[in-house]
Amino acid sequence: MTSPHRSAARIQIGTTLRRMREEAGVPRERVAEVLHCTLTKISNIENAISGVKQAELEKLLDLYRADDATREDLLSLNSEAHRRRPKSKIGGAIHPWLRRILDVEAIASEALYSSFELIPAVLQTEPYARALMAGIGLGGETLEKNLHLRMERRALLTDREPPLQLWAVIAEPALRANIGGPEVMRDQVKHMVALTELDNVVVQVMPQGAGAHALTGTTLTLFRLPDKLPSLVSVDTPFGAQFVDGLDQLEKTSRWFDYTRAKALGVEESRELLTRITEET
């Protein structure tokens, strides 16, 4: 019997191919003609029910007029998925691996986030995000393109139907990190307080001095996906995000997140602390 589990690579490739097809304005019927297959197969590839052969992927990339960086990234990912070896990262103004993360995030029904250092991208203000990007060496056109892309992600919480359900556990030091200076941090925390008025946004603060917890020192996002797709974990590293898709690892991450939010301040206590931080900054 075929395993119902779909790998992280298959989901990333399928969601990205669907986004590229829609952006190119290519109907599925045309794709089926190019691959000499049924519409069901195209649907299965885009929904990560089945994988795509390397030769088929090349044809799709030609059809969608993929740029060189995207072509190399997806072909490499598809090849490495079969060999199950770590994939390489590719440079560029916007990294293809970041595009893949955004494609997964765009279809996610829920995102569970935990970090000791950073505020999640969908909650970031433009000045805070700009300071973060400048801090890692981005500048000029590269910074502006990445900043624009990050600001677009915020619409997932307000403009998408249904909106992304976000549950974030953020350590207090991240709220006092002085990224961009006191005014930038104050406005960033105020922005978060305002967003917690939304029914789909929950923010808990892990207070300073709370001690170790299950996700100490880790920045990660657990994505819950629709249509019976399995969950995915994105772990931030200095070289980009790494996806985790092992069933045992997913179960552990979900359990660790439950332990972490149980140790954090309650929702109302967190809002009170966030408000107090804006007054103290």
Rank of each mutant, 00 (worst) to 15 (best):
L35W: 04
K59T: 07
H5M: 13
M20Y: 04
R276G: 12
E46H: 14
A214V: 07
R85F: 09
D248E: 09
L57R: 05
D187H: 14
R130S: 15
P96D: 01
R71D: 04
T218Y: 09
L149D: 02
Y64I: 00
A81W: 14
T218Q: 13
P96A: 00
E141F: 04
D73V: 10
M20K: 00
S270A: 11
L118S: 03
L229Q: 08
E105Q: 15
R100H: 12
M1G: 14
L195P: 00
L39F: 07
P207Q: 05
L157D: 03
Y64F: 14
I94G: 07
E72I: 08
P173S: 02
R85N: 13
N47T: 15
L123N: 12
I13H: 01
Q208W: 10
E269L: 01
I101P: 00
L157V: 14
M133C: 12
L265R: 09
G14I: 05
G181E: 01
M185E: 03
R18L: 05
P96E: 00
T158M: 11
D67Y: 02
D245Q: 00
K263P: 05
F257G: 02
R6I: 04
S7G: 11
R28H: 05
K190F: 06
G14W: 01
V184F: 06
I90W: 11
P120N: 02
L123G: 08
P230K: 00
P182F: 11
L57D: 07
L149T: 08
A32Y: 03
L232V: 15
L112K: 14
A264T: 07
K89Q: 13
R84W: 14
S76P: 06
L138S: 10
A212G: 08
E280R: 15
L166N: 02
L175M: 06
P127Q: 13
S79C: 10
R176C: 04
R99G: 04
T16Q: 09
L57I: 06
L123E: 01
S254R: 14
L265G: 03
L166I: 07
E22S: 09
F223Y: 15
V244C: 05
A171Q: 02
P127T: 09
T221I: 12
V244Q: 13
K228W: 09
S254I: 00
T216I: 11
A111M: 13
D187N: 12
G92M: 08
P162E: 10
D248V: 09
I170M: 07
S7E: 01
M133S: 09
